[in-house]
Nucleic acid binder design. Structure first.
Length: 732
RNA sequence: GCGCGAUUAGCUCAGUUGGUAGAGCAAUCCAUUUACACUGGAAAGGUCGGGGGUUCAAGUCCCUCAUCGCGCACCA
C-alpha cells in the first residue's frame, strides 16, 4: 500500500509525469512498440490521421473533443494489439490564419496591404511557428497518445511537393482549368472564395422598380445598373411579344441616354416582378450565364474594393454602400423610379468570416472540374464499397452534395499559403502549370498562331483546403515512403461534422483520385461543443470555455470522460462545468476503490491484518457468489468490447462508470467488508482475487477514457510481469 | 423550393433487429469520524410533439401535421 492513496487523487501531481513517461517510453510510436515487444510485428495496422490543428491560436473546446475521441479510439486499438499510428499535424490554415494575423496587425495600426508580400509571409510564418509550440503542449495536456516523431506541417517541403504533383496531374488529366469566371469576392479580405466560404444571410431591404424605357425593371441593387444595356425577357412572354430579340431601343438612363438591346432568354421567371430585367454580367452569376449564352459584352462596374468605376459617371469612386441612396435620389429626380417595395425579403451572400456582402466579380482563377472526381466517390459510397459514416445520415448529406457539386475555385489572393506553381500570360491571360519554373513565353495557340508573350508568376496561393484535402496521403509520405505503404489507407477520419464538405468529402475525392483508394474507411463526425446553455461559443458572446481551464481545475481525465458520456456522434454537446466536476469525483472514487482493494488491512475496523497477495490470472477457486460476479464481469467486458467496436463510447463510459461506482463500490465492496474480516479463509481469498480482477477490468476498460488516473493506479497493482497500462491487452 | 436532423423525466440526453420507458445532473427525504463527504441510503419524477395507419404488440415501422435546428439552391 503506497502512501499516495492516503490523499485524494491529485491530477496535477500525476498527469505531466505520466505523459512524459509514455512519450519517453516510445509507447505512442508503433515502431518502438514493436521493438519493445508491446505490439506484434505482424499486427494489423490501425491508423488515424489527426485533423491538422490550426496553428493560429490556442486549443478550444472543439479540439478538446477531437483529441479525446481520437485518443479513445487509438488507445483502445493499441490495447487490442493493433500496430497503432496516430499521426499529429499542424495546418497553416491559409485564410483563417491570415485573418487572425490581420486582426493582430490592425491592433498594431498596420494593414497587410502596407507590407511587402514576402515580409508578410515571413511574419505570419513566425507567428504560426510560435503558436504551434503552444498548441502542441496543449494537445499533450489532453493526453493525446499521438506519435510526435511523425508530426507533419502542411507547409513541409515534402507535403508541398505532393500538393504540386496533384495540381500537375489534375492539369494533365484535363481536370484543371483557368478561366474568366464569376467568382465570389470579398472586398474586405481582397480574395476570391469557393462556394463553401459563403454564408447566406436573410435580409429585408428595399426593392426598386425602375423605368427602363418602355419597361419597368426590378432590382435590389441599383448601384450595379449603370452599365446595363441588355434588357431580357422570356421568349414566351406575350406581354412583350412586340419586342424582338436583338432589337435596339433608345432610352434615358441614370447618367443620360443609352441604347439598349432586347434579349429573349428562358432563364427569366415571367411571374417575378414585371418579367423583365436588365443584366449586369460582371457582378451576377445568372446574368453572366445569360451573357455567355448570347455572347454579350461584360463590363465591370464595381472595383475590387467595392467602389464604383468611371462607368458610373459622377458616382465613380464612391463606395457602393454610400452610393445607393444617392443613385436612388438621382433616379427619383429624373422620374425613373416607378415604385419602391420597402420590405423585400431576400438572401444576401456574405463572407463567412467578416459578413461583408460578397461582390461577384469576373476573375481568372484556377478551377478544378469536380464532377468526374465526385462521380468516382459517389460510385464507392452507393456501392457501400469501403466507406462507413458515423452517424449514418452524413452519407445522405454527402451524396446530395456530390450530386450537385460545383467546380472548385482553388485560387486565393492571399500571401499565407502554398504558392500556386503556375505562370500567367501578360497578353492573353492564359495560365500554365509550371512546377520547374522554366516557362518564359506563352505557348497559347489560336487562329493567329502562338501568342509568345511574356509569362509572369501566378501570385496567388492555394485554397488551404486544397492542400488539406490531400493530407492523409501527403502526411504519410505519398507515394514511396514506408509509412504510406504500411498505413495507407487509414482507418478512421474523425472530425467536426461542420467540415464535411470543406474537408472530408474533398479528401475522399482527391485521395481516391491520387492513390486509387479512399483515404479512410470510417468517417466519424462529432458535433459542435456548445456552452452549458446550449449556445454556440463565441468571443463576442463571452461564453467561450477554455478546455485548459477545466483540465486545470478538475483534471484531464474528468474533462475527457465528461465530454464523452452522453455525447452521441454527430449531435452537439452542451459543455457544463458541473458535469466535468462530477467526473472529478469519479476519478477520486476510482482512487478510493483502489485504496480499499490494495490495502494491506481491510475490514470496517481495519483490525484484521492480511498477508499481501498477488493477482492470479488463473485463479479458479471462486466461491459460488464470486463465480457469479466473475461471470457478470466477463459479460460486461464482452458487451463493452462490442460497443467500442461500434464506436459507442458514450455507452461504454457510462456503463463502466456505473459498474465501478454503483456495483463495485456501493455493493461489492460493502459486502466484502464482512468477508474480508471474517474467518472463512477460502471465501476471503476468492473475494480478494475477485476485487483485483474487477479493478483490473475497470482500469483497462476506462484507460482509453481516463488514461492518467488509470495508469497511476495501475502502477500500484500487485501483479507479476506487469507492463504499463497503455501497452496492456484489452479486457476481452 | 430541395435535402438532412431533432421533438422522451425540471435540465442534458440514451433507448441496438418492434416485446410493460433508462442514465447523469438538479430537486426531495434520511444517514454521518465509513476505502472515499470529492460519501452512503431511500423515494419521487414521463399519455415518448399532435393526429392517423400497419401489428397480437409501436418511443421504435409507414403516412401526415406542427414546432425548432442545419445544409444546399435560388427571382433580377
Amino acid at each position: 500500500m503506497k502512501e499516495k492513496f492516503n490523499k485524494p487523487y491529485n491530477p496535477k501531481e500525476t498527469e505531466e509525469r505520466i505523459y512524459q513517461m509514455w512519450q519517453d517510453g516510445g509507447y505512442f510510436n508503433p515502431d518502438t512498440s514493436i521493438k519493445e515487444g508491446y505490439t506484434k510485428p505482424d499486427a494489423k495496422p490501425f491508423t488515424i490521421i489527426m485533423p491538422p490543428t490550426n496553428a493560429n491560436g490556442s486549443l478550444h473546446a472543439g479540439h478538446g473533443l477531437v483529441m479525446t475521441i481520437e485518443d479513445i479510439m487509438v488507445r483502445y486499438k493499441r490495447m487490442r494489439g493493433y500496430r497503432t499510428l496516430w499521426l499529429p499535424g499542424l495546418d497553416h490554415a491559409g485564410f483563417e490564419t491570415q485573418v487572425v494575423y490581420e486582426k493582430k496587425l490592425e491592433k498594431e495600426g498596420r494593414t497587410r496591404f502596407d507590407i511587402e508580400p514576402k515580409k508578410l509571409y515571413e511574419e505570419i510564418l513566425d507567428f504560426t511557428l510560435t503558436n504551434s509550440s503552444n498548441i502542441k503542449s496543449q494537445i499533450k495536456k489532453m493526453g493525446a497518445s499521438c506519435d510526435w516523431s511523425r508530426e507533419k506541417f502542411t507547409l513541409d517541403e515534402d507535403v508541398v511537393k505532393v500538393v504540386y504533383g496533384t495540381f500537375k496531374k489534375l492539369s494533365d488529366d484535363g481536370l484543371l482549368y483557368r478561366g474568366k469566371r464569376i467568382v465570389s469576392w470579398c472586398s474586405k479580405h481582397q480574395t476570391a472564395f469557393s462556394d463553401l466560404e459563403i454564408k447566406d444571410e436573410e435580409r429585408v431591404e428595399p426593392f426598386y422598380f425602375l423605368k427602363y424605357g418602355p419597361f419597368v425593371i426590378g432590382t435590389s441593387r441599383p448601384e450595379t445598373k449603370f452599365g446595363d444595356k441588355y434588357v431580357v425577357m422570356h421568349p414566351d412572354d406575350t406581354r412583350y411579344s412586340a419586342y424582338k430579340h436583338g432589337q435596339k431601343i433608345e432610352l434615358e438612363w441614370i447618367n443620360g441616354p443609352i441604347t439598349a438591346t432586347i434579349i429573349k432568354d428562358e432563364a427569366i421567371d415571367m411571374a417575378f416582378g414585371t418579367g423583365v430585367m436588365t443584366i449586369t454580367p460582371w457582378h451576377d452569376p445568372v446574368d453572366f450565364a445569360i451573357a455567355e449564352r448570347h455572347g454579350l459584352d461584360k463590363e465591370q462596374v464595381i472595383d475590387d474594393h467595392g467602389k464604383l468605376l468611371p462607368i458610373a459617371g459622377e458616382f465613380a469612386g464612391i463606395h457602393i454602400k454610400k452610393a445607393r441612396p444617392l443613385i436612388i435620389e438621382k433616379l427619383q429626380s429624373k422620374g425613373l423610379v416607378d415604385k419602391v417595395d420597402e420590405a423585400y425579403k431576400h438572401v444576401v451572400r456574405t463572407c463567412y468570416k467578416c459578413g461583408t456582402v460578397i461582390e461577384p466579380q469576373i476573375r481568372s482563377q484556377w478551377f478544378v472540374k469536380m464532377k468526374p472526381l465526385a462521380d468516382n466517390v459517389l460510385e464507392k459510397i452507393k456501392a457501400k464499397d469501403g466507406i462507413n459514416y458515423i452517424p449514418e445520415h452524413y452519407e445522405k448529406i454527402t451524396i446530395h452534395w456530390l450530386e450537385n457539386i460545383m467546380d472548385w475555385n482553388i485560387s486565393r489572393q492571399i500571401v499565407w499559403g502554398i504558392p500556386i506553381p503556375a505562370k500567367i500570360c501578360t497578353n492573353c491571360g492564359s495560365g500554365f502549370v509550371d512546377l520547374e519554373n522554366k516557362m518564359t513565353t506563352c505557348p497559347h495557340k489560336d487562329a493567329d498562331g502562338v501568342c509568345g508573350a511574356t509569362l509572369v508568376k501566378d501570385n496567388d496561393t492555394f485554397d488551404t483546403w486544397f492542400s488539406s484535402s490531400q493530407w492523409p496521403f501527403a502526411a504519410l509520405g505519398f507515394p514511396n515512403s514506408e509509412d504510406f505503404k504500411n498505413y495507407y489507407p487509414t482507418d478512421v477520419m474523425e472530425t467536426a461534422g461542420e467540415i464535411i464538405f470543406f474537408w472530408v468529402t474533398r479528401m475522399l475525392m482527391l485521395g481516391l483520385y491520387m492513390t486509387g483508394k479512399l483515404p479512410f474507411s470510417t468517417v466519424y463526425l462529432h458535433g459542435l461543443v456548445l456552452d452549458a446553455k446550449g449556445q454556440k461559443m463565441s468571443k463576442s458572446k463571452g461564453n467561450v470555455i477554455n478546455p485548459l481551464d477545466l483540465t486545470e481545475k478538475y483534471g484531464t481525465d474528468a474533462f475527457r470522460i465528461g465530454l464523452i458520456v452522453g455525447n452521441t456522434p454527430g449531435t452537439s454537446l452542451a459543455l457544463s462545468e458541473n458535469k466535468i466536476s462530477a467526473y472529478k469525483n469519479f476519478a477520486n472514487k476510482l482512487w478510493n476503490i483502489s485504496r480499499f482493494i490494495l490495502a494491506d488491512t481491510a475490514g470496517p475496523a481495519g483490525d484484521v491484518k492480511l498477508e499481501p497477495i498477488s493477482f492470479d490470472p488463473h485463479f479458479k477457486a471462486w466461491t459460488e457468489q464470486d463465480a457469479l460476479r466473475v461471470k457478470e464481469l466477463h459479460a460486461l467486458a464482452k458487451e463493452i468490447t462490442k460497443e467500442m467496436d461500434e464506436f459507442k463510447f458514450y455507452i461504454v463510459a457510462e456503463k463502466m462508470y456505473h459498474y465501478a461506482w454503483h456495483e463495485l463500490a456501493d455493493k461489492i465492496i460493502e459486502e466484502s467488508k464482512a468477508i474480508l474480516s471474517g474467518s472463512d479463509d477460502v471465501a476471503r481469498l476468492s473475494r480478494r482475487q475477485f476485487l483485483l480482477l474487477a479493478l483490473i477490468t475497470i482500469l483497462k476498460s476506462l484507460h482509453p477514457f481516463m488514461p492518467f488516473v488509470t495508469e497511476e493506479i495501475w502502477s500500484a497493482l500487485p501483479m507479476e510481469k506487469k507492463i504499463r497500462l497503455i501497452a496492456e491487452s484489452w479486457v476481452a
